[in-house]
Computed example of a mutant assay.
Amino acid sequence: MIIFRLATLAFGVAASASLHAAPPVTVEVSGSVRNPGTLTLASGALLSDAALASAPDERSYMLGAALLRHGELIAQTRLKTGLLFDLEMIESREATDPLGAAAATRIAREFSAMPVTGRVRQILAPRSLEMDLKSNRPLADGDRLYYPTRPGTVSVIGAIEQPCSIEHRPLQQPLEYAQQCPALASASKDDLFVIQPDGEVEKLGIALWNRSAESTLAPGAIVFVPLNAHVLRDVNPAFNEEAARFLATQVLDAPGAPK
């Protein structure tokens, strides 16, 4: 009788565990992979599981691979909304600062067209993930992994006459890229921001008094020409840093890029 009761109790525990088992996670993979589309993986699956299952092909540009998370969308939407609000405030001062207002209009046009992606900085090379326990974090339901092809250009945007796409040259410095795109009068003469294709952001001094050490860019990098401090007065002194942070959430434009 005791044995029967113990067996019944064990069966009940097992059944309860089965009923309350964590559901599988569903992720979407796109870009230069052999197995694009929706993947359903067991609860507790890691990023490496999705990366290996998607099988990035020989054209995949790992430095630009992107993890897009639904949970990041709200914060990034607020970031974009705040940037557009700041630019609107600068535009409203057209009567007292027409050059700053014109620059704000240009930048607002660019940023308005950029999507909120949910991108978080993350290595996604399958074998690298397997060896890096800290980076190989659990998947979240709804995650999207995107593996672009390797671009051949560097983009320059911000306080310039018009956005530029310049052929990538391995040893060319960020300032040399920026100098190929005419800057507006309201552009900062002291700093540039560099956003590498993996989402790394770096602020570089470009004036004689704050000149940074030499820095190289990877294909697909963005050079952001910031607004000067005078334009940002009484609006948001951290605007340029926040703008660079938003740019780091964008993904490389290649066939299969998520929209």
Score class of each variant (00 low, 15 high):
126 P>A: 11
199 G>R: 01
15 A>S: 13
223 V>G: 12
4 F>A: 15
134 K>H: 12
194 V>P: 03
180 Q>C: 01
115 P>R: 08
103 A>F: 00
63 L>S: 14
48 S>R: 11
219 P>H: 06
156 V>N: 07
170 P>W: 08
21 A>D: 07
211 R>E: 04
147 Y>R: 07
106 R>T: 08
10 A>M: 12
80 K>V: 06
62 M>I: 08
167 E>V: 15
216 T>M: 13
78 R>L: 12
242 E>M: 13
179 Q>V: 03
102 A>E: 13
189 K>I: 06
44 G>K: 10
56 P>C: 10
248 A>H: 01
145 L>P: 09
175 L>K: 03
37 G>F: 09
110 E>P: 00
250 Q>K: 02
103 A>D: 05
222 I>M: 11
113 A>T: 08
212 S>T: 06
183 A>F: 01
100 G>D: 07
40 T>N: 11
75 A>C: 00
179 Q>F: 06
52 L>T: 02
149 T>N: 12
203 K>H: 06
158 G>S: 14
236 N>D: 15
21 A>V: 07
119 R>V: 01
7 A>S: 10
74 I>N: 15
67 L>S: 02
209 W>M: 09
149 T>A: 08
119 R>T: 01
224 F>I: 04
168 H>Q: 13
83 L>M: 08
24 P>E: 11
153 T>I: 04
221 A>V: 09
177 Y>V: 14
114 M>A: 13
47 L>Q: 05
200 E>F: 10
248 A>K: 06
239 F>I: 10
251 V>T: 14
148 P>S: 09
140 A>T: 05
81 T>K: 15
55 A>C: 03
79 L>M: 14
178 A>Y: 08
246 F>P: 01
126 P>Q: 12
150 R>S: 09
62 M>G: 13
23 P>S: 14
63 L>V: 12
74 I>P: 01
51 A>V: 10
103 A>K: 07
212 S>Q: 02
210 N>D: 07
189 K>N: 15
201 V>Y: 05
223 V>C: 14
71 G>E: 13
162 Q>K: 15
192 L>I: 05
131 M>Q: 14
129 L>Y: 09
122 Q>S: 15
70 H>S: 12
128 S>T: 14
84 L>K: 08
132 D>Y: 03
131 M>S: 13
66 A>M: 04
85 F>W: 09
82 G>Q: 11
53 A>V: 04
207 A>V: 00
162 Q>S: 15
134 K>W: 08
119 R>S: 02
244 A>K: 08
218 A>T: 11
99 L>S: 13
138 P>H: 09
20 H>S: 14
